[in-house]
Design a protein around this nucleic acid. Structure first.
Lengths: 215, 215
DNA sequence: GTCTATATTGCGATAGAC
DNA sequence: GTCTATCGCAATATAGAC
């Protein structure tokens, strides 16, 4: 009697989560009906209520899964080796790639931040980005203590600048594409390479840098 | 017969728009009821339908007004004088201040971009940010042709980096506040000053810059 | 122009058969 | 576990008095 496959553990639950993730990443909470989720998952609406007590619980489950998946994806960008400049290049590239690889997750998380504002901010700060942000700060601090980077800048500020550049690129691609000046909208790798290069060397020609002001 | 004041041109319409703007910036489209808008505006629900044919038309009117207001607000950041580095500092500061001064407008426009994706992207690209973006690119190009900035970087890329840093700061303030490393979450002016400083001078110490690779 | 009252639709959630 | 059928309710939108 035991040979029956028992199929996949929680197969129905997974189908529902996948369908809900897709729909919630496209539309806002209220714009996604339980009916639409059931349709997308290929099951009946009432069946969803067998697995989840209500719509809110389903949404939270989707959000939790997305947030966790994003984190594991980004963790690959953390452990890199070599000199600081190479680590930064690698980090930026992996981070942007992670965002572009799973746009649904990013949009889902970002929508939640926009919607709920400060109320859920702490939760996301701990769950979602904490380790990525801290890892980047650590990389920068290491570069400073090794003398590979200047010591008169705030590592957290540079980390924000770099992560923000990637997130903004992800968010604004469709808009940037319409500007004639922009040539990098479809070249994320080139974008990141350019960003890191500018961060490292600055915009001012070396010859005209006032070295006395750095003391 | 003409002395009657005619009161304010479209006063009722303005009240409705203001109320709708406030509510739509806090919640998503479906989460805002016409009843709530009427309550906020201090009029009856049916009266809204006297000025606007349906909920969708009202939302579009709000969006159009917000987008236009944002543009005029940001235009103040464009006209600055002096050497390029000072213009950049001024520009960054004004831009971020404009975002922080009218968070409802920014959130409204950004929510629309998130929701509709590429479909409305072109419209916003032209209406909302085109002139600000172009102005910043022009400033950078001027700096390059005057020899005040390096010539081996893409002005559009730097413009994206700078605008993105400000937008990301605006969007993520509540999250950044929870990180122990971050000291600038409540100091936008200091944030921008630091950003521009890094952009101009780079992260690498001047002494260790390989001047041969710049040719 | 502004209101009250109402028509109508679509939602989340439940009941109960299989 | 999965389904069909339905309840209760809140929402958009309309009708018509004043």
């Amino acid at each position: 009697m035991g040979d029956l496959p028992l199929v996949i553990e929680g197969e129905g639950r997974q189908r529902i989560l996948a369908a809900a993730e897709k729909l919630f990443s496209d539309k806002a909470f209220d714009a996604v009906s339980m009916n639409a989720i059931a349709l997308q998952a290929g099951i009946s609406k009432a069946n969803i209520y067998h697995y989840f007590p209500n719509k809110d619980a389903l949404y939270l489950a989707v959000l939790r899964a997305a947030s966790q998946s994003l984190r594991t994806l980004l963790n690959d960008a953390v452990d890199a080796h070599g000199v600081v400049v190479d680590v930064l290049r690698h980090f930026a590239r992996c981070h942007l790639q992670a965002l572009l690889d799973r746009p649904e997750w990013v949009r889902l998380v970002w929508r939640e931040i926009l919607e709920k504002g400060a109320s859920r901010a702490q939760e996301f700060a701990e769950q979602g980005f904490a380790d990525v942000f801290s890892a980047l700060v650590a990389v920068l601090e290491a570069g400073q203590s090794r003398g590979e980077l200047r010591v008169d800048f705030d590592p957290a500020l540079v980390a924000t600048l770099l992560l923000g550049a990637n997130v903004f690129f992800f968010q604004s691609r469709d808009i940037l594409r319409h500007y004639p000046h922009v040539t990098f909208a479809d070249d994320p790798a080139g974008y990141d390479a350019g960003i890191v290069e500018i961060l490292l060397r600055g915009l001012i020609p070396v010859s005209s840098v006032d070295t006395t002001s750095t003391r």
